[in-house]
Design a binder for these strands. Structure first.
Lengths: 255, 255
DNA sequence: ACCCTAGTGTGGTATAGAGCATTCGAACGA
DNA sequence: TCGTTCGAATGCTCTATACCACACTAGGGT
């Protein structure tokens, strides 16, 4: 049973194999055991060298979808059914993944000079132009978060004037229009009281539970340039933030 | 200038090279440019094949310490000086990394039957024995967090009776005594009000700011078995949680 | 001055092959 | 029946080689 992989100019072979395996994982092939074909079997099946087959498995491993055991084989992680390949996701994608309908209300969208905090986070000179996008975020018509994104103007000129982020996803535009790949992010989480504006926007009752989860995030592209600094306040009672961490080959350092 | 790499039985060659490069990065070789030697140069320097040198660089890349650009070279991430190889860190390590002195007060340490939540998180039968370790965590003598860890008794028998976790790190014991490698973690963050006990333990003033950051975490070993379920409450005013996320080869899936 | 081209160096992909340690079951012997 | 040995399968490391696409530079031509 030979398999059709696209020839020269397409996506690399090992990624094509990775895609196929991912689909099979999500389709539930490999059953409850979750045992994938061995490297040698995959090499045979796809008519590639063993190293190429191995690379496909390793890519899945790096995404946290499978794990390997010497002498036994490669197995599907139980959590792999839910998640895909993306590890840096946007609010839009997160909400959609929960089966809810996201939308946004743009509160502010303007180019402004960077203040100290923004300049430091984005590693740009003070007062450089920055696209600021402040949005109230909804899931199923309920306000969940206030999100303020700052992007160096030079990275994506005319970002705000050319797009309407009421429905468009910022990440999608960055990727598809400006060709910017987000590769790395640093996030901090803090619990705090909501201020008056936040209480009003997030529809919080006057007396109780005026608590927000503050998330600050700097996202970098693949060449270590800061692309966005996002400062968010999530409704404390209605939102929970989830992240997955992989210890990439956690080997002890010898002293 | 040839380099001394240990022979047959030691750590794999590419990891030895990785270690050397990491030390050089942290020592500030490669200067402000941050340009590492090319794959071919490394192969020459360490007398290994290019694929092996490449593997060392890739390992650093997966840990988020460097990034590569075709046609140009491999470069140090600016954030790489602070961080090491570990991505799954414990409270003890986190506090130490901030230059503060951690210690703990054990509030509870006993084997108990698992309730529904714990059983579900750890994927074990209801009422199976679980080692429960509840600690008040300090940094520089100030109470910062209440942390309750649950571990399946079968994973690490006699964990609580044989160790005193006032000063010992749970992760260290897991790794060094039981040989358990933590490979993967799922964390959720939530902002919440502190209850009476938490206010008391965390030394919170009566009127104001009784806010905690709740972090729930399930950690898996390399074979996808849940090893610990930790539920924590961090002092809202004094603690901020930081995580780094890498998009491991974020390639678009074709539909 | 300007543009184009050729060359060199870079990381990324792919092949073919080898030996290693671990795992597990089947065959074997006590 | 029990334990041991052996072999097959598996993932991991490592070598050697090759070609590609991309980035940059130096030269040469206009």
């Amino acid at each position: 049973m030979t398999e059709m992989l696209k020839g020269n100019t397409a996506r690399p072979l090992y990624l094509q194999i990775q895609d196929i395996l991912l689909k099979e994982i999500q389709a539930g092939v490999y059953g409850t055991e979750g045992k994938l074909p061995s490297e040698r079997e995959l090499a045979e099946r796809f008519k590639v060298s063993r190293m190429t087959a191995r690379q496909a498995l390793q890519s899945l491993h790096q995404h946290g979808l499978v794990y390997a055991q010497v002498g036994k084989g490669t197995f599907v992680r139980r959590a792999a059914f839910k998640q895909g390949l993306e590890s840096l996701s946007s609010f839009t994608e997160d909400i959609r993944a929960l089966g809810q309908v996201p939308h946004s209300q743009v509160l502010f969208a303007q180019v402004m000079p960077a203040d100290e905090i923004v300049a430091q986070r984005l590693q740009i000179p003070l007062h450089s132009p920055v696209s600021v996008l402040k949005r109230l975020r909804f899931a199923n018509q309920q306000p969940l978060a206030i999100e303020t994104a700052h992007l160096p103007y030079a990275c994506c000129p005319n970002l705000l004037s050319r797009h309407d982020f009421t429905h468009e996803s910022l990440y999608r535009v960055l990727q598809e229009v400006y060709g910017i790949r987000l590769a790395y992010a640093e996030q901090t989480f803090r619990a705090d009281l909501a201020d008056a504006t936040e209480r009003r926007l997030l529809n919080m009752a006057d007396g109780a539970l005026n608590i927000v989860l503050r998330v600050a995030r700097v996202t970098f592209n693949s060449t270590d340039q800061p692309i966005e600094y996002v400062s968010s306040a999530y409704h404390g009672a209605h939102y929970e933030f989830q992240v997955s961490l992989r210890a990439v080959r956690a080997q002890v350092m010898l002293p």
